[in-house]
């Protein structure tokens, strides 16, 4: 495969006409547990990459540490499997100096909402043109069952065996509360068509697209989404032409709310769960400045740099 890739891409006309298929995005066999929601999310991501025809060499997946953060190893693209909580700064560095690359960030709920919370808040403000996926299973899985900031109150774990002490953090409300919030959506691993459509909208959005994916962990939090999975009546789809449009879900979900993603106040109201879990695009606004564009500076040739440097040194001449 890679032989073929190289020979094809070495000549420009071919590379432009190259059609990527799903197998072009497949890498190592995923080592998540059987039944883990991450498998479905990976498949949806690969479908989206194919649908958008993103050249693997122009695409970078950056992750932190945790079950979800193994993601880049399973996608054939460039990847950076970093350290816990710090995927966003790495991705910021990549996109800031290489805006030509398609950048995807994959984090878990511990990564994003706990140890890396500062980067989450500030990445929303920077508003770089990238997609940030938060695969939220409400638990620390890789370290074997500790309470996470999104664990439902009362959920027993190895660190809070008598149940999670605090109410969970609402990642959607938190994101919507930050200046420059640009794209905020929620989807669920058991609805692959919805994941696909949401990701596609996120990728096409110009700005920082934050997507929370409700993700089942068959090992530790099997029950937290089971009622939702089995009772579509508890899920409310947010529908709008500017949101996620998934016609095949229409029959399954009777519960729908018309929500214009331009309406921030409505988005904030809908983000606060009143028993229903809402899926779709809460908010979308492409008018915010995009950091790598705001910070773009014209490249200089070596000769220009040297001439300018000599001028600068002259300021210090004695």
């Amino acid at each position: 495969m890679s032989d073929l890739c190289c020979s094809l891409l070495s000549s420009t006309p071919d590379s432009e006409e190259r059609e990527w298929t799903i197998s072009d995005y497949e890498a190592a066999l995923a080592r998540w547990c059987p039944g883990c929601g991450d498998h479905a999310i990976l498949a949806a991501v690969q479908r989206m990459l194919e649908a958008e025809q993103l050249p693997p060499e122009q695409t970078v997946f950056v992750s932190g540490i945790g079950c979800a953060s193994r993601f880049p190893h399973y996608v054939r693209a460039y990847g950076f499997h970093g350290i816990h909580g710090r995927a966003l700064p790495i991705a910021t560095g990549v996109k800031l100096r290489r805006p030509d690359l398609n950048v995807f960030v994959v984090m878990g709920d511990g990564d994003c909402c706990s140890i890396g919370a500062a980067h989450w808040i500030h990445s929303i403000r920077y508003n770089l043109d990238m997609v940030a996926l938060m695969l939220d299973n409400g638990v620390y899985g890789l370290t074997k069952n500790q309470t996470s900031p999104t664990s439902p109150r009362g959920l027993p774990s190895n660190t809070q065996p008598r149940g999670a002490i605090l109410p969970p953090l609402n990642p959607i409300s938190a994101t919507l509360g930050v200046a420059n919030a640009s794209f905020v959506a929620q989807t669920a691993d058991w609805l692959p068509a919805h994941v696909f459509a949401t990701l596609r909208e996120a990728f096409r959005h110009h700005g920082f697209a934050f997507v929370r994916v409700l993700q089942r962990c068959p090992k530790y939090t099997e029950n937290i989404f089971s009622t939702l999975v089995h009772d579509p009546g508890l899920v409310e789809l947010m529908v709008h032409p500017d949101g996620v449009v998934v016609p095949e879900l229409d029959r399954m979900f009777k519960n729908k709310v018309q929500h214009d993603p331009a309406d921030l106040d409505a988005a904030r109201r809908l983000a606060v769960s009143d028993g229903n879990v809402r899926l779709g695009v809460f908010y979308r606004n492409e008018t915010h400045p995009v950091y790598e564009e705001t910070r773009a500076v014209p490249a200089r040739s070596a000769g220009e740099k040297l001439a300018l440097l000599n001028t600068e040194l002259d300021r210090y001449a004695v």
Binding site: V60, V62, F80, G82, R86, L88, P89, I90, A91, T92, G93, V94, K95, L96, R97, R98, L101, A118, H119, I121, H122, R295, V297, P298, A299, R300, K305, L308, L309
Partner: peptide
């Protein structure tokens, strides 16, 4: 000179951004 100073949200992010940029 075609360069930028990125003031990060903290020390950790600062080196993370530098690392990402170097990786790229």
């Amino acid at each position: 000179f075609g360069g930028i100073v990125h003031q990060a949200e903290d020390e950790i992010a600062a080196i993370g951004v530098a690392l990402g940029s170097s990786f790229a």
